[in-house]
């Protein structure tokens, strides 16, 4: 990375600046409504992008490995376009969401998804490097990426952390939904079940990532397959955010 180390530093500075601005905006929204702007898909998406960029900056500064930025930055920019152009009103949470469970549920899940997005990016780079090594035509990725072994370890770490938070988020969500159904008559709450697309896909994610961890530990899956699964898993996460969050769900759309 010698040739572009100055460019890399500049890019990092831009990302840091952007994240700070984003922090400021989220901070403003928080003071405006009295809690994190997690209500509504758009607000949650914005927080998700914010968390991802923090997670990425953390891995970059600790590993001094800038090569992933090429992949993750465009993804974040693309996702952030939605909150940017939709000019959404920061939603104040309805009474049903006024619960300590709310912040725990949403922030666990968002953090899990942020971890999965990092894992996905690492998975992509793993596959690119693997292909290059297999094709015996080493060059671009060979010169820029760390070893397959390190990418694999990073990928597994991100998946494990993500899975942990996903589990917490899902359990908290389940417990909280049962409580809420007893308390509120809101039809959206009453209709909440495993068949709700958003809940269903979250559970599907949990199954996919649990299987990935199990296969890795007990079946002896290779780094290649783990990498592939990290990408598939994150595709499902994105599916939950975008089409499902905006168009499909009827009950879970707060």
């Amino acid at each position: 990375m010698k040739r572009s180390s100055r460019g890399g530093r500049t890019a990092t500075s831009f990302l840091v600046a952007a994240t700070l601005v984003h922090t400021f905006i989220i901070g403003m929204q928080t003071t405006e409504i009295g809690h994190l702007p997690l209500v509504g898909t758009t607000g949650a998406l914005s927080v998700f992008v914010w968390l991802s960029s923090i997670a990425y900056l953390y891995t970059e500064t600790t590993s001094n490995e800038r090569s992933m930025g090429v992949f993750i930055a465009p993804l974040l920019v693309a996702l952030q376009i939605i909150p940017t152009i939709s000019r959404y009103e920061v939603a104040v949470r309805p009474p049903v969401l006024e619960s300590p469970w709310f912040v725990l549920h949403i922030s666990s899940l968002l953090f899990a998804y942020a971890s999965f997005s990092v894992a996905c990016v690492i998975g992509i780079t793993y596959m690119l490097l693997f292909k290059e090594l297999k094709a015996k035509h080493v060059g671009f990725f060979y010169n820029r990426l760390p070893s397959l072994q390190i990418l694999d370890v990073m990928n597994m770490r991100a998946i494990t952390i993500g899975w942990l938070f996903l589990t917490i988020g899902v359990i908290v969500g389940g417990v909280w939904a049962l409580q809420a159904q007893a308390e509120f008559d809101d039809p959206r709450v009453q209709a909440m079940s495993v068949l709700d697309p958003k809940i269903f896909i979250a559970l599907l994610c949990w199954v996919v990532y649990s299987f990935e961890l199990y296969a890795r530990r007990s079946v002896g899956w290779t780094g290649w397959r783990t990498a592939k699964f990290s990408i598939i898993g994150f595709a499902i996460v994105l599916l939950n955010f975008l089409p499902v969050g905006y168009f499909l769900t009827r009950t879970h759309n707060f």
Binding site: L129, L133, S147, Q149
Partner: peptide, 9 residues
């Protein structure tokens, strides 16, 4: 160098 790219250390 190739071995290191595959296995790390």
């Amino acid at each position: 160098a190739l071995a290191r790219k595959i296995f790390g250390s």
